[in-house]
């Protein structure tokens, strides 16, 4: 790692101030950032740790009925505390990384990084969640901007994520055998207004909504409804762990399994 300064603010306001410095970088749980720093692939002048900000931690039911999760809440806490509020989301959180990673990794950190194989983006996009930052609210549909890219401005912090709770929902993840990230993961959420399907791990463009499946499932919420659909391999990730064709195939299979689990 290159040398850097380290700050540990305890309020959002102080964190924002600290991040105003040139080349300052926010540090969530660090489960992705620290390995990146070890490889000397990033050279921040200063890391601003967000894990000591009490107002950014925790899970609760908001006044509007949505589930609000503080940006610095570790996956393990979501897995536990969201279990009754939004079981499918809690279950997803409980499948990220491994237990020790879940103790540290945070929802805000995961979303800000927007790894194309991360699990949380699928839940956020399928739920139609709102990303609350220190300065504004961003709809999920506007937040994800392709691999490792988001709508966040430099120095902007995810302080909270608000999830509308669907009638039925489930996440089906097919893990990449080495990293255990999603080779393909599909989150299906059924609302009164319709069904949303978000896919992670598969596309070169990062998390995306599978509109065709949403349409089919909105009229018939069953695994059969997606079995007949096909997904084009164009634009799918091809690597050692799976060809674009394989990932396209898995999108369909995992969607069907998520629907089955949700129903």
């Amino acid at each position: 790692m290159y040398a850097f300064d380290f700050e540990r603010p305890t309020t959002i306001a102080d964190a924002v101030k600290a991040l105003a410095a040139a080349d300052a970088q926010a540090l969530g749980g660090g489960q992705t950032l620290i390995p990146t720093l070890k490889q000397r692939l990033a050279q921040p002048s200063k890391l601003v740790s967000l894990t000591h900000i009490a107002e950014m931690r925790g899970v609760c039911r908001a006044d509007d009925g949505s589930v609000a999760i503080g940006g610095a809440t570790p996956h393990a806490v979501v897995a536990k505390e969201a279990a009754s509020l939004y079981p499918a989301l809690a279950k997803l959180a409980g499948q990220i990384g491994d237990p020790a990673v879940r103790s540290r990794g945070t929802i805000g950190g995961s979303l800000a990084n927007n790894d194309p194989s991360a699990c949380y983006p699928a839940a956020v996009l399928a739920s139609g969640a709102t990303i609350v930052t220190n300065s504004r609210r961003i709809a999920a549909d506007d937040f994800f901007r392709g691999m490792f890219a988001t709508a966040l401005n430099p120095g902007e912090i995810i302080v909270e994520v608000r999830f509308p709770v669907p009638e039925k929902a489930a996440y089906a993840k097919f893990p990449q055998p080495a990293s255990r990230f999603a080779l393909t993961g599909v989150f299906v959420a059924k609302f009164a207004s319709g069904v949303r399907v978000a896919v992670t791990g598969a596309s070169e463009g990062g998390v995306f909504r599978w509109k065709e499946a949403e349409q089919a499932l909105s009229s018939n919420f069953s695994a059969e409804a997606v079995r007949g659909l096909s997904v084009s391999p164009a634009g799918m990730i091809g690597d050692l762990h799976g060809t674009p064709e394989y990932r396209a195939h898995l999108v369909r299979v995992m969607t069907a399994r998520a629907v089955q689990a949700a129903a």
Binding site: P177, L183, H241, G242, T243, E245, Y246, H249
Partner: peptide
């Protein structure tokens, strides 16, 4: 015999 190879 990874999933993708077996599937292919």
């Amino acid at each position: 015999l990874s999933p993708s190879r077996v599937w292919a």
